[in-house]
Amino acid sequence: MTELTQTIHSILAELRPEADFSMSVDYLTDGLLDSTDIVSLVASLDARYGISIEGTDILPEHFTSVATIARLLGKYGVAS
């Protein structure tokens, strides 16, 4: 696990401590993240990495797993 994926894991655990993200292949269809979680997650990622994720990038396909979130962050120059 890279430092980036570890950080994403810990942000997710902070958001939804009761959820088991490790067993999920799609956080959205499994109902692990709702609309308020997405808003909080984006705010946390923005703050943690000093970036501003564009609204047009806040799409379901970028929030299905740690890997897709990491790819999205890569677009903003966050190294994995």
Binding site: L28, L33, D34, S35, I38, G55, T56, I58, L59, P60
Partner: peptide, 9 residues
């Protein structure tokens, strides 16, 4: 409902 999580949609 999912569109309200992803306002671009």
């Amino acid at each position: 409902e999912s569109h309200f999580s992803f306002p671009a949609n």
